[in-house]
Amino acid sequence: MSIQHFRVALIPFFAAFCLPVFAHPETLVKVKDAEDQLGARVGYIELDLNSGKILESFRPEERFPMMSTFKVLLCGAVLSRVDAGQEQLGRRIHYSQNDLVEYSPVTEKHLTDGMTVRELCSAAITMSDNTAANLLLTTIGGPKELTAFLHNMGDHVTRLDRWEPELNEAIPNDERDTTMPAAMATTLRKLLTGELLTLASRQQLIDWMEADKVAGPLLRSALPAGWFIADKSGAGERGSRGIIAALGPDGKPSRIVVIYTTGSQATMDERNRQIAEIGASLIKHW
């Protein structure tokens, strides 16, 4: 067993022997301040990774656009098919120029040779490549099948209805392509620590998230040296922004954090800054 596999296998073990965790309302004060600064709703939840206990939450059962955070769930569904012998990570998928959609920095470079399922998941999570996500959605049967996968996990809230990039439209009061912070946090925890996926697939999923290259201005910008984070960000229309993450000190994750916002007129930089400040408060009061 590799060191990384050992780390993920012992996530519940280490967490069980940690000192009790206590909620700190100071972080919620910052979440509410972010709402004021952005002029928009902000949803927040913080779960203990081992027990699933909610440590703090704000608007945990209000719907927010998922945006690209759905790509972690998508690759979880792909990995479940791999575990069941219905898919192979090494299978190569070929596609054409007509398949390319807006923001496809990886797939646009491989029109000639195609990409493997493993490479597509890596591109979808680490670079948020939209064509990679659409190609992977095709392998599982489309958005409705991802929703069905989530329902089978016990998540009857999260739903995907459309493809990239239309799913980022974020129309107010439109339930399409949305989740709730509580539902997303619980589902992410199941994917990373539950028995739904094999140990190898859980490790692969967290490795992809740990290698995320496009979430630097968010929670990662607030992390002290030595902290662990595996995350996936999302951005959408109407001032929408979000991030889902597993993080913790001492090089291992111990909490799940989900943050979503929508309806702001603020710039992307300002949305990023507010999420980073929430992260800084979380870490300060850990």
Results as ranks from 00 to 15, higher is better:
Leu120Asn: 07
Thr193Asp: 06
Leu199Phe: 15
Gly52Phe: 10
Gly114Phe: 11
Asp36Tyr: 12
Pro181Asp: 05
Met184Val: 06
Leu191Thr: 12
Arg202Phe: 06
Arg159Leu: 07
Pro165Asn: 00
Cys75Gly: 05
Trp208Gly: 07
Ala276Trp: 15
Leu55His: 09
Asp269Val: 10
Gly52Asn: 14
Asn168Val: 07
Ser68Ala: 15
Leu282Asp: 11
Tyr95Pro: 14
Val258Tyr: 07
Gly234Phe: 14
Gln97His: 01
Ala170Gly: 08
Arg118Met: 06
Glu56Met: 09
Ser57Ile: 01
Pro224Gly: 04
Thr126Cys: 03
Leu223Cys: 02
Glu61Asn: 03
Val258Thr: 03
Arg255Leu: 04
Leu247Gly: 08
Ala276Tyr: 14
Thr112Gln: 04
Val78Cys: 01
Met115Ala: 08
Ile243Arg: 11
Lys53Asn: 10
Glu237Pro: 00
Arg189Tyr: 14
Val72Met: 01
Gly194Gln: 05
Leu137Val: 06
Leu199Val: 06
Lys71Asp: 15
Asp174Arg: 07
Lys144Asp: 01
Trp163Phe: 13
His24Met: 11
Ser128Gln: 13
Ser254Thr: 08
Ser201Gln: 01
Ala225Phe: 14
Thr139Leu: 09
Val72Ser: 07
Thr178His: 13
Ile54Asp: 11
His24Asn: 09
Leu160Pro: 12
Ile256Thr: 12
Arg81Asp: 12
Arg238Asn: 14
Ser221Lys: 15
Thr262Gln: 09
Thr187Val: 08
Ser233Met: 15
Met127Trp: 07
Ser104Ile: 11
Glu87Asn: 09
Glu195Arg: 00
Cys75Lys: 00
Ser96Leu: 04
Met67Cys: 00
Gln88Ser: 11
Leu73Lys: 06
Gly39His: 12
Pro65Leu: 06
Ala215Met: 09
Gly239Val: 05
Leu188His: 15
Leu167His: 01
Val258Asp: 02
Glu169Ala: 08
His94Gln: 05
Asp212Ile: 00
Ala84Pro: 01
Leu223Glu: 05
Ser96Trp: 03
Ser68Arg: 02
Glu56Thr: 14
Arg162Val: 02
Ile256Tyr: 12
Ala77His: 10
Thr27Tyr: 13
Ile140Glu: 09
Val82Leu: 00
Ser221Pro: 15
Ile259Phe: 11
Ala245Val: 11
Val106Gly: 07
Ala34Pro: 08
Leu135Lys: 03
Val157Asp: 15
Asn98Ser: 11
Thr126Tyr: 07
Glu145Thr: 14
His110Val: 01
Arg92Cys: 11
Phe64Ser: 07
Ser57His: 05
Gly234Pro: 05
Thr27Pro: 08
Ser68Cys: 09
Ala124Ile: 01
Lys213Val: 06
Gly43Asp: 11
Asn134Ile: 02
Leu205Ile: 06
Val29Ala: 06
Arg241Ile: 11
Leu73Thr: 02
Pro172Asp: 01
Cys121Asp: 00
Ser201Arg: 00
Leu47Thr: 04
Arg271Ala: 10
Thr186Tyr: 00
Ile229Thr: 10
Lys32Asn: 11
Leu74Met: 06
Lys30Pro: 15
Glu175Phe: 05
Ala246Val: 10
Thr187Pro: 13
His156Val: 11
Glu210Arg: 12
Val117Trp: 01
Asp174Leu: 06
Val157Pro: 10
Glu169Cys: 00
Lys213Asp: 15
Arg238Phe: 09
Val258Cys: 13
Asp231Pro: 10
Lys232Pro: 05
Gly216Thr: 14
Asp250Phe: 14
His110Phe: 11
Lys109Ser: 08
Ile125Met: 13
His285Cys: 01
Arg271Lys: 11
Pro65Thr: 05
Arg273Asn: 11
Gly141Met: 07
Arg238Gly: 00
Arg81Lys: 13
Leu205Arg: 03
Ala215Leu: 02
Arg81Met: 08
Arg91Phe: 13
Lys53Asp: 10
Asp48Cys: 08
Arg91Leu: 05
Thr262Glu: 07
Ser264Glu: 03
Leu146Ser: 01
Ser233Lys: 12
Ile243Met: 11
Glu166Ala: 12
Pro143His: 10
Arg271Pro: 14
Val117Met: 11
Glu102Asp: 13
Asp33Val: 11
Gln204Ala: 05
Glu61Tyr: 04
Leu199Ser: 11
Pro165Ala: 05
Gly279Thr: 15
Ile283Thr: 07
Ser233Tyr: 13
Arg63Ala: 06
Thr198Ser: 05
Ala211Asn: 13
His151Cys: 04
Gly52His: 12
Trp208Ala: 08
Ala276Thr: 15
Arg255Asp: 07
Lys284Glu: 03
Pro172Leu: 04
Ile278Gly: 11
Gly142Thr: 00
Tyr103Met: 14
Asn50Trp: 07
Asp83Glu: 07
Glu119Val: 04
Trp208Gln: 05
Arg41Phe: 11
Val31Gln: 05
Leu146Met: 05
Gln97Leu: 06
Thr139Lys: 08
Gly194Asn: 02
Thr131Lys: 04
Arg81Trp: 08
Lys144Cys: 01
Arg271Met: 04
Glu210Tyr: 05
Arg271Gln: 13
Pro217Trp: 06
Ser281Phe: 10
Ile54Val: 10
Glu164Val: 05
Arg118Thr: 08
Thr116Asp: 01
Leu47Gln: 02
Ala148Leu: 06
Thr198Phe: 08
Ala200Leu: 00
Val257Arg: 15
Gly234Leu: 06
Glu35His: 04
Gly43Asn: 08
Gln37Leu: 11
Met153Arg: 04
Ile93Thr: 03
Ser51Thr: 08
Ala222Tyr: 15
Val106Thr: 12
Leu196Gly: 04
Ala170Trp: 00
Met66Ile: 13
Trp163Met: 13
Thr107Val: 04
Ile171Leu: 05
Lys71Ser: 14
Ala84Trp: 03
Thr107Tyr: 05
Asn168Tyr: 13
Val72Glu: 00
Leu160Glu: 14
Arg92Val: 13
Gly154Gln: 08
Leu74Arg: 02
Gly52Lys: 09
Ser96Thr: 07
Lys213Leu: 07
Ala276Cys: 10
Val214Glu: 15
Asp129Phe: 02
Ala183Phe: 10
Pro60Ser: 07
Lys284Trp: 03
Asn50His: 11
Trp227Tyr: 08
His156Ile: 13
Glu35Cys: 08
Leu28Cys: 05
Met268Tyr: 13
Leu150Ala: 03
Ser57Ala: 05
Val117Ala: 06
Ser57Asn: 04
Ser122Gln: 12
Trp163Cys: 12
Thr138Ile: 06
Ser281Arg: 11
Glu145Trp: 13
Glu195Met: 00
Ile275Cys: 11
Ser264Cys: 00
Glu56Asn: 13
Thr262Gly: 09
Gly114Pro: 12
Trp163Thr: 12
Ala123Ser: 06
Gly263Ala: 00
Leu136Asp: 02
Asp83Lys: 10
Thr27Ile: 08
Gly239Pro: 10
Gly236Lys: 15
Leu167Pro: 02
Ser80Pro: 10
Asn130Trp: 14
Leu136Phe: 06
